[in-house]
Design a protein around this nucleic acid. Structure first.
Lengths: 202, 202
DNA sequence: TTCTTTCTGCACCGATCGGTATCTAAGTTT
DNA sequence: AAACTTAGATACCGATCGGTGCAGAAAGAA
């Protein structure tokens, strides 16, 4: 069985697909799905329409790939937060990550997972649904993590993991909206601190 | 001086401008500024493009008038909340109003002041700025109200009106995002209750 | 009646949308 | 060298965008 990975026949791609995807992610992050035109995207990516279609399919699949990259890049704070040993640290790290990612210098303000997912015309409905599912996934991960904390005695047995997860997600979403409105990192960190002040004691 | 309000010359308008504006508000509420096309708007309003332009100017002024109507209609809970005698009641009523307005049956989920204000292409930037200013206004009103509460001794002297206002606004914005994602009214009211659990005692 | 204004309805404007087609040139395989 | 694939550039597709122009009818004021 030949498993040698041979190079594909033909002229190799002349651009770095990862870097192009990174640039596309930034455009979607700032302008949302519908607000980002193909002209915006391809000129930021430094490639032609044809190359974009050959490499990524179409605008919608490009968006989905950009969202994946966002999850593993700027939004990786979420996965890291979930690994903290204590539920309180999970919540604290999640909100702190949300604050720093939505206010990172050199990146668009706000959260790609929230931008442009609220209102949409017909053409953006699929992207809107994808982002709603994305946020639901994040909330489910938090819920499972908090359930685990209850099982371990890390949270009081009366604590409601579903509610706690929704609460944290709500504050994080609000932080993203505030960031687009120009709120500074320190202002939002104060809000995050305030939101955690009523965290259930062990 | 003649102040008699005489009827304007010419054929009178054949539709109810208030009702047409109400319908337009609903479309903007659901689809955002850019996501709402003139075809969507005028067909919901039941009038032609020409009539719309004659009555409201253009799409942008129509949006601004719809936003005013929203402020005085569905979002009037904010003004009512500010009149409560105690700061705690202000915060409670503000969040409760936010929950009920973003999940009202027969109306789009979410908040017109948040929808479509996060991401925008070039054509939607003016509307985006208008909505950011709208949210800033709301936050300023809360801040002043909480400052007054501090002055009256209704809040502890160490309380930070700026932070409290931003905190409440952040939670309300997050509630709006959650509502678009399909969260129910009771789920969001629980979140609002949780957010107020750490309100400063008198 | 005459004037004025807005009505409805439809065609139309230039611009942009997402997406393709076509060309030549270039690089890597067999 | 032959086969293959991609790159870049440009022009184009039908559809839709926000916004107008024009026609004729309708209704109130002069």
């Amino acid at each position: 069985m030949e498993i040698t990975r041979r190079a594909p026949i033909g002229r190799p791609r002349g651009f770095d697909a990862d870097e192009a995807l990174e640039r596309a992610m930034m455009v979607f992050w700032q302008q949302g799905y519908e607000g980002a035109s193909l002209t915006d995207l391809t000129s930021a990516m430094g490639i032609t329409r044809k190359s974009m279609y050959a490499a990524f399919g179409n605008k919608e699949t490009l968006f989905r790939k950009a969202l994946e990259r966002y999850t593993e890049g700027p939004a990786a704070y979420a996965a890291r937060a979930l690994e903290k040993p204590r539920a309180r640290e999970v919540a604290t790290a999640f909100l702190a990550g949300s604050v720093s990612t939505t206010t990172r210098p050199g990146c668009p303000a706000g959260c790609l997972g929230v931008q442009g997912s609220l209102a949409a015309g017909d053409s953006g409905r699929a992207a809107q649904d994808a982002l709603i599912a994305w946020r639901d996934d994040g909330r489910a991960l938090l819920r499972h993590r908090f359930q685990q904390a209850v099982d371990e005695g890390d949270l009081p047995s009366g604590a409601d993991p579903e509610l706690l997860a929704r609460y944290i997600m709500t504050v994080a979403n609000g932080i993203a909206v505030q960031a687009v409105g120009g709120a500074s990192r320190s202002e939002l960190q104060q809000v995050a601190d305030a939101a955690l002040r009523n965290w259930p004691p062990v």
